[in-house]
């Protein structure tokens, strides 16, 4: 009894403290809201995506990959900008507006990197850009690396002109760049599962 009596108020205080809600304690006053928001967005900034597409050198390096695990390993270092959405389907994390030929605006990633992982499919790794400007910029990067037009051939998906252009560079012997402007970058896959109404600019680099 001697111990219980002094312990009672202590227990009561302990219970009262345990009753406080951590969520309620983590509230900010309206005056400080702006400051907290700024600090939080600055902290988030280091994880924010900084670009919408891969660079030419990265695509050239990816050409050395012959299977998905190699691509996954390569893209793992770039997971700030690209997300591995589904098996063999990478997409830019940042989303922006893409306008289709009817003038409709869609919010979507400006680029994807898809590999064909279907059984019996031959290896295909395509970087598809959804804006002409980003496509032109990437083509410019390749041209700076010495890639020049070699020839063009029929594109199985039916490009805008039904053609696929091949580029090569003396600096990268044995590596060829294929560019197609098309509405059928992939057959029923990921983002392109339904009817694609916006022009896609497909970049593929392969090693002979």
């Amino acid at each position: 009894m001697k111990i219980i009596r002094p312990a009672l108020p202590v227990c009561f205080i302990c219970i009262l403290f345990a009753c406080s809600s951590p969520s309620n304690r983590r509230a900010v006053s309206t005056d400080e809201l702006e400051k907290v928001q700024a600090a939080d967005s600055a902290a988030q900034q280091q994880y924010a995506a900084t670009r919408d597409a891969l660079s030419a050198t990265e695509l050239i390096e990816l050409a050395d990959c012959a299977d998905l695990s190699c691509v996954q390993l390569y893209m793992k270092d770039r997971d700030n900008d690209f997300v591995h959405a589904r098996k063999g389907e990478f997409a830019a994390l940042h989303r922006s507006i893409v306008t289709d030929t009817a003038g409709n605006e869609f919010v979507m990633p400006l680029s994807t990197l898809y590999a064909d992982v279907n059984p019996q499919a031959s290896w295909r790794l395509a970087h598809t850009l959804h804006r002409k400007q980003t496509g032109d910029r990437l083509l410019g990067e390749f041209q700076q690396l010495g890639f020049a037009f070699v020839d063009s051939g029929y594109f199985i998906g039916g490009g805008l002109k039904g053609r696929q252009a091949r580029f090569s560079s003396p600096e990268y012997p044995g590596k060829n760049l294929y560019i197609t402007a098309t509405y059928h970058p992939w057959y029923m896959k990921g983002l392109y599962n339904n009817k694609v109404t916006w022009p896609c600019y497909v970049f593929e680099v392969y090693k002979d």
Partner: peptide
């Protein structure tokens, strides 16, 4: 505004007031 795949979101903070 959309679903899980939307990266742009409206951020709200718990306020005392």
């Amino acid at each position: 505004a959309g679903g899980r795949l939307d990266t742009a979101g409206l951020v709200f903070y718990r306020i005392k007031d």
